[in-house]
């Protein structure tokens, strides 16, 4: 059941990205170009998503199980450290270079875009490099850091 709801959530997520214009890199770059001819549409995408999301997270509150009876896996980290800031900085630079973030990258892959394929392969390579660096860092430690 959890796999079916995950598939459904991914599907709705992807349809939302396409409808919103978020899967169109030129539109994302037009949003990021605040000193040029600025297209503010994507601010409304974030606004709409957060408006609905806030209700859901308020409903979830401090439940220990989901409505399917699964354990809740919400992030517990509180520290604002160098990893968070520098990682987000690198992500933002990459996002500004191509106008593509991870969700839209997978939608572009599904749409059969050759640019999307190149981006996704490079992104997976980047994630793989992270894993290798993390594993070599955590040698001798009992547990790896958990990710959101």
């Amino acid at each position: 059941m959890a796999n079916i709801t995950a598939l459904l959530a991914g599907l709705i997520f992807g349809l939302g990205l396409i409808l919103a214009g978020m899967a169109n890199p030129a539109k994302v770059l037009a949003f990021l170009d605040i000193t040029g001819a600025w297209d503010p549409s994507l601010a409304l995408v974030m606004g709409g998503a957060i408006a609905v999301g806030s209700i859901a997270f308020a409903v979830v509150g401090r439940r220990s199980r989901s409505y399917l009876g699964l354990p809740m896996h919400l992030p517990t980290a509180r520290v604002i450290d160098k990893r968070l800031v520098l990682g987000s900085l690198a992500f933002g630079i990459g996002w500004g270079m191509a106008g593509i973030c991870p969700g839209p990258a997978l939608v572009l892959l599904g749409a059969g875009s050759s640019e999307g394929i190149v981006f996704v392969v490079a992104m997976l390579l980047g994630m793989g490099i992270f894993e290798i660096l993390e594993r070599s860092r955590s040698v001798g430690r009992p547990k790896m850091g958990r990710h959101v």
């Binding site: 992030p75 980290a77 990893r83 968070l84 800031v85 520098l86 990682g87 987000s88 900085l89 690198a90 992500f91 933002g92 630079i93 990459g94 996002w95 270079m97 191509a98 593509i100 973030c101 991870p102 990258a105 640019e115 190149v118 981006f119 996704v120 392969v121 490079a122 992104m123 997976l124 390579l125 980047g126 994630m127 793989g128 490099i129 992270f130 894993e131 990710h147 959101v148």
Partner: peptide, 17 residues
């Protein structure tokens, strides 16, 4: 540029959680 951007997005999002 796409490949470089993808690489940075991959590493950056993982370090930045």
């Amino acid at each position: 540029m796409l490949a470089l951007a993808g690489l940075m997005v991959g590493i950056g999002t993982r370090y930045g959680s």
